[in-house]
Simulated assay, not measured.
Amino acid sequence: MSVESEPRYPFVIVDVSAEESDELAATLFELGASGVEERDDQTLLRGAGAGRVTLVASFSDRAEAEAAVEGLREIDAALAPRIEEVVGDAWRDAWKEHFAPFALTPRITVAPPWVEAPQAPEGGHVLWLEPGRAFGTGLHATTSLVAELLDAHAEQLAGKPLLDVGTGSGILAFVALLLGASRAVAVDNDPDVIEVVQENAARNGLEARVEAREATSEGVKEAFPWVVANIEARVLRPMAEDLGRLVAPGGWLILSGILESEHDEIVARYGELPRGLRHVETRRRGDAASADTAWVAILFAG
Rank of each mutant, 00 (worst) to 15 (best):
S34A: 13
F174Q: 00
T105S: 03
D93Q: 14
G168L: 00
S261A: 15
D76R: 09
A141D: 01
S182L: 09
A111P: 07
D264K: 10
F59M: 05
V115H: 12
A25E: 09
G159A: 11
A94L: 12
L162G: 00
L177S: 01
V56L: 09
R245T: 10
A202S: 15
T54E: 13
V267T: 07
R52Q: 12
E70C: 08
L273Q: 00
E38A: 14
V53N: 04
A67F: 04
G159P: 05
K160I: 07
E97K: 14
L55W: 02
V12T: 08
H263R: 14
G219F: 11
E4N: 13
E19D: 15
R183E: 15
G219V: 10
V235T: 11
D15P: 01
G302W: 06
E211P: 05
R183T: 02
A186H: 01
A63F: 10
F11L: 07
H279R: 11
E116S: 15
A117L: 14
H279T: 08
E38F: 15
E19C: 09
G219M: 13
A65I: 04
R209G: 07
D188F: 01
R8H: 11
A212Q: 07
A68F: 09
A181G: 06
V296Q: 01
A215T: 10
I231S: 07
L104H: 02
G271R: 09
A77M: 05
V280W: 12
A294M: 10
T282P: 02
V69H: 04
E37W: 12
R133P: 12
A176E: 00
E37N: 09
I298N: 00
D93S: 13
G49Y: 09
D76T: 07
D264H: 13
G168N: 05
E241H: 12
V115K: 10
G71L: 04
Q198C: 08
A78T: 14
E38R: 14
L179V: 02
L172V: 01
L31S: 06
V53P: 01
M1A: 15
N200H: 12
F174M: 08
I171W: 10
E199M: 12
E241P: 02
W91P: 02
A57P: 03
L255D: 01
Q119I: 12
V87H: 06
I75T: 08
S17T: 15
